[in-house]
């Protein structure tokens, strides 16, 4: 209780700051030693592009978790949006022909559907006061089932003409950097600024650390909460826009377990699962760590790639243990 004894704030979080960076650096060094192609341009862009979908979603997830929430539905939401987008675009081909306008309409549908789905989660959570876990567990099942129904149990495929027109959104780019990487980078930069330097970011952290205090401080708790889910939904829409041209199809298996990877990336990055503290750049590191592990196992025959999940799981647990040490007082 003595003032002079109060330890300064920055010292407390040091280990959790260094931890993820250290892990990433170690992984990169290990990778470079094991396979000379690891740091090659092709592999680096490959890793980044693969990280982009989960990464874009995980940035939104960072805000949701920081504000004390959770969203389990993002994976099936992505599948549903992908299915919906493909259906809408295919149905427009007869009237509008194969062309850029159809793809733009498809993109708009994806963004709107994402926003609507996110807001629906948010409204159920804030207005009806149902636990985020329950609401999003429910919507996870609903969207997964809807996409299966839309695809009639099989696969929804994008019109062949549209597919080749749309493909550059995934495979193309500028200066050898593909669009998913560019979009990912833009989302990260904006996310980092919003988290760090805007009232919205500050409110998210305040609500996550103590909702009562936020309420008593005249913060519009419900609105901020709702906005985190809406933003996440929108980002799921963006991720889906980047994902659909990769395969040109959607099925009930699309986006499987994305929610867990996104949540894992957020936690590995040092955001506190209970809320109250979040950092977007940490999430990026978390995503890269998860992707790199898979990539390394594929490039080397040191450990079977089938053990990918086990290693990722171990790292998640380790990250939480480190987080707790950092918080010990």
């Amino acid at each position: 209780m003595t003032d002079a004894a109060a330890p300064a704030a920055p010292r407390r979080i040091r280990m959790t700051v260094i931890g993820p960076i250290l892990a990433l650096v170690l992984l990169v060094i290990a990778g470079a030693l094991m396979n000379p192609n690891f740091l090659g341009w092709d592999n680096v862009t490959n890793v980044l592009a693969r990280s982009a979908f989960i990464g874009i979603i995980a940035v939104g997830m960072t805000f949701v978790i920081t504000a004390g929430g959770l969203d389990l539905s993002v994976g099936s939401m992505a599948a549903f949006i992908a299915g919906l987008m493909i259906l809408v675009m295919n149905s427009l081909v007869p009237s509008m022909g194969v062309g850029v306008p159809v793809i733009l309409v498809g993109m708009a549908v994806a963004l709107l559907a994402g926003l609507a789905a996110g807001m629906l989660n948010g409204i159920l959570i804030t207005r009806l006061g149902i636990e985020a876990f329950i609401v999003t567990l429910g919507s996870m099942g609903i969207y997964r089932s809807l996409v299966t129904w839309l695809a009639d149990g099989g696969t929804l495929s994008l019109d062949f003409g549209l597919r080749s027109l749309y493909q550059p959104v995934y495979y193309g780019g500028i200066f050898g950097i593909t669009w998913p990487i560019i979009v990912f980078a833009v989302v990260v930069v904006i996310g980092e600024i919003v988290m760090r330097s805007t009232a919205f970011g500050r409110y998210c952290a305040a609500i996550g650390s103590n909702e009562q205090v936020a309420k008593y401080s005249s913060v519009r708790v419900d609105r901020v909460r709702l906005m985190t889910y809406a933003a996440l939904g929108l980002l799921v829409g963006i991720a889906t826009i980047m994902y659909v041209p990769r395969l040109g199809s959607a099925s009930s298996a699309t986006g499987m377990l994305w929610e867990l990877e996104a949540i894992a990336a957020v936690i590995i990055g040092g955001t506190v699962l209970k809320g109250g503290f979040g950092r977007v750049w940490g999430t990026v590191i978390g995503v890269l760590i998860l992707t790199l592990i898979g990539n390394l196992l594929n490039l080397t025959d040191f450990v079977s790639p089938y053990l990918n999940g086990a290693i990722q799981g171990a790292i998640i647990v380790l990250a939480v243990v480190l987080q707790r040490e950092g918080k010990a007082r």
């Binding site: 004894a5 300064a8 704030a9 407390r12």
Partner: peptide, 13 residues
């Protein structure tokens, strides 16, 4: 009174 960078939980009542 108290350290400027202190966590509020460490301040006296």
């Amino acid at each position: 009174r108290g350290h400027r960078d202190a966590l509020v939980g460490n301040l006296s009542g």
